[in-house]
């Protein structure tokens, strides 16, 4: 199975990088861009075919290492 984990800053945590990207996009002639939040995408190859188990395992990975839950939230996508 292929899994994608999206890690982003929690709402309410200031994202200076996102802010700078938004500012730059506005400056490049895209005034329609409002708030920008940036994060990271982590792709995982997971052995096995039990989707529920995989999801639970990835959740544990996120809590343990992939995300810092003090400031970050995560979403898991399984294919």
């Amino acid at each position: 199975m292929k899994a994608r984990v999206f890690v982003t800053l929690k709402n309410g945590v200031l994202d200076p990088q996102g802010k700078a990207i938004g500012h730059a996009l506005n400056g490049l002639g895209f005034p329609q861009v409002g708030e920008v939040r940036q994060g990271k995408l982590i792709e995982l190859e997971i052995a096995g075919s039990d989707a529920d188990k995989a999801r639970a395992d990835i959740k544990a990975m996120c809590e343990k290492l992939l995300a810092n839950t003090v400031i970050e939230k995560y979403e898991i996508e399984l294919k």
């Binding site: 945590v13 200031l14 200076p16 990088q17 700078a20 810092n68 003090v70 400031i71």
Partner: peptide
Amino acid sequence: LTESHLLPGALMRNAGL
């Protein structure tokens, strides 16, 4: 230390990037 939860909070990218 913050990642190990020996101290609270987190250290984020400098505001000036």
